[in-house]
Simulated assay, not measured.
Amino acid sequence: MAAPIHPCQRCGACCAAFRVAFHWSESAPHSPSGPDEALTVQVRPFEVAMRGTEAGTALRCVALQGDVGRAVTCAIYDRRPSPCRALQAAWENGEPSPQCDRARARHGLPPLTPADFTTGAG
């Protein structure tokens, strides 16, 4: 039997709803474990953002692959920056996530529930 698909792999709303900004030192070559510098754009003197998330209302991270709300993946998941690592799916650890709920709402998706992590339905 196949492992259930994590709700985030059927969502991706956060990657297409918010600016993903972080200190430039998190990106390669400054940090080998960070996203490639070419995937970022400077937004302030000491801050960069993932391309596609830097401004406007039509946000979509350059590293997001697939269709929001259907099937997605992050092309740099192992090298994603700290804001991506910090954002948790609602109820993933038994706690709500207003940021996750807002991102999903922006894409017409219902909020996740605790059942999404027991049934794999999210």
Rank of each mutant, 00 (worst) to 15 (best):
R85D: 08
A17L: 02
C74G: 00
Q42L: 08
E95M: 11
P35L: 15
S33L: 13
R44N: 14
C74M: 02
A86I: 10
G12K: 01
P83V: 05
C14I: 02
E92C: 14
T40Q: 09
W91L: 04
P111K: 05
P32S: 13
Q42S: 13
G52R: 06
F22I: 07
A71F: 01
R19F: 05
T57R: 14
A21F: 09
D67H: 10
A3R: 12
E47T: 15
M50P: 05
C100S: 11
A89F: 11
A89N: 09
P35T: 06
Q65C: 10
A75V: 02
A49N: 05
F46D: 14
C61D: 01
I76H: 10
F46R: 15
G69R: 02
T57Y: 05
E47H: 13
G120A: 06
A103K: 11
R80N: 06
A86D: 15
T113R: 15
A90L: 08
H23A: 14
A63I: 08
R80V: 00
R106F: 06
P114M: 02
P83L: 02
V68M: 01
A121L: 03
R70C: 07
A63Y: 01
T40K: 07
S97H: 03
F18Y: 15
F46V: 15
E26M: 00
D101M: 12
L59T: 00
V20S: 07
T118R: 09
V41G: 03
F18Q: 13
Y77C: 09
G69T: 06
S25M: 12
D67G: 13
S31G: 02
T113W: 07
V72N: 08
A63R: 06
G52I: 09
P98S: 11
P32Q: 05
C15V: 04
M50T: 13
V68L: 04
L64A: 11
S25V: 13
P35S: 10
A28G: 12
